[in-house]
Simulated assay, not measured.
Amino acid sequence: MEIKLNNGLLEVRVESFGAELIGLRDLKTNREYMWQKDPKFWAKCSPILFPFVGALKENRYFYNGEKYSITTRHGFARDYEFTINSQDENSVEFLFEGNETTKKSYPFNFKLYLKYVLVGKKLRLEYRVENLDDKKMYFSLGAHPAFATPISENIDYSDYYIEFEKEESGEVKVLEGGFVNPELTKKVFDGKKIPLAKETFKNDALVIENPNSYRVNIKNDKNGYNMSFSYEGFKYMAFWNVPGAEYVCLEPWCGITDYANSNGNIEDKQGIEVLEGKENFTRNIEIEIL
């Protein structure tokens, strides 16, 4: 089911399956900012990543001496229908709860909320994880929105760039076969800007651990494209696309894909979040059209 929010400045479209953001249109310019799911490159638009980010080594992990298997990347929440928990003129909140099926691969009782709030030319995404158990809950949470970078006769993909609010080291994690090489990092840019090119992501995502910045902008000086993206509280920030596709993903993560030397124990997983019994975990993202 598709839900629309419209405040006269922006139109937002969200699909209840996966609580996925599928549209963000500036009503004054009629510019669509979300990638529109071309299966030739990538058939998603903005999946939620839970209860894991990335892949599990050998598609499995261990908890309390038991082996559990998840074969999909980025967990399973994105592949379920969410219910509408609340809705008004400028917001909608979705809910996904653990069930007997999810317990077979993830033995925790949880509620996962994702609320979209439209304020002026800002869209705020509010994530909340509730641990319904008395025991500790181990999880990761991430966002994966793909923002359209359309090209034309006069505009090339290389005319777009990512600009950080602060200077960055330019060092990123090295992914090999979808897993982090624990021995390597690579310097891929200098200062505040990542210039985009068709080959930028040829070796997978660029993943920054503990960035200095909690805001980036996607810009294009030729066509006036300027979008701000805020992500405070996320330990990792990743950037990705399929080479040749007209989008770039901005991916704030609380968690990361397995390291190549992972022992598989969930308690030892790099970047894993731990939520005490009956406690809540919250994170927010803001997208602003400038």
Rank of each mutant, 00 (worst) to 15 (best):
L49T: 01
Y80C: 12
P51E: 13
K57L: 14
V92N: 00
S46W: 04
N64F: 02
N85K: 15
R78Y: 08
S69Y: 06
S91G: 08
T72Y: 03
K57T: 04
Y61G: 01
F76K: 09
Y68L: 12
F52I: 14
T83M: 07
F76E: 06
I48V: 13
F50I: 06
Y61P: 02
L49F: 03
A55G: 07
F82A: 04
Y61L: 13
I48Q: 08
N64M: 06
D79Y: 14
S91F: 02
Y61V: 05
H74G: 06
N59H: 14
I48W: 02
Y68P: 03
Y80F: 13
A55F: 02
Q87Y: 02
T72H: 10
Y68V: 11
L56T: 00
P51T: 07
F52W: 11
R78C: 10
K67Y: 02
N64L: 09
S69M: 14
R73K: 13
E89I: 08
A77N: 05
F50C: 05
Q87S: 11
N90I: 03
S86C: 11
S86N: 12
R73S: 14
Y63V: 05
T71W: 03
F76L: 15
D88H: 05
S91I: 03
T71L: 11
A55T: 07
V53H: 00
R78G: 04
Y80I: 06
Y80Q: 12
E58D: 15
L49Y: 00
F52E: 01
I48G: 01
R78H: 11
N85P: 00
V53E: 03
F62M: 14
F52Q: 12
F76N: 09
I84C: 10
Y80R: 15
S46E: 11
S91R: 07
Y61K: 05
R78E: 11
K67A: 14
S69H: 06
K67L: 11
E89F: 07
S46A: 14
V53W: 02
T71P: 02
N59K: 14
A77C: 12
R60V: 07
N85R: 08
F62S: 10
Y68Q: 11
F82G: 00
Y68K: 06
I84W: 05
P51F: 05
E66P: 00
S69C: 14
E58P: 03
S69F: 08
T71N: 13
G75V: 01
K67E: 15
L49C: 09
R60S: 11
N59Q: 15
Y68S: 09
R78V: 00
N64S: 13
S46H: 04
F82E: 01
E66H: 09
S69I: 14
T72W: 02
S46T: 09
A55H: 06
Y63K: 09
L49A: 04
H74M: 08
T72V: 07
L49K: 01
F82S: 04
D88N: 15
S46F: 04
Y63L: 15
E89D: 14
N90C: 06
G75Y: 01
A77I: 07
E81G: 04
F52V: 10
G65Q: 08
N85C: 09
F62W: 08
Y61H: 10
I84N: 07
F52Y: 09
H74Y: 09
I70D: 03
R78P: 00
S86I: 06
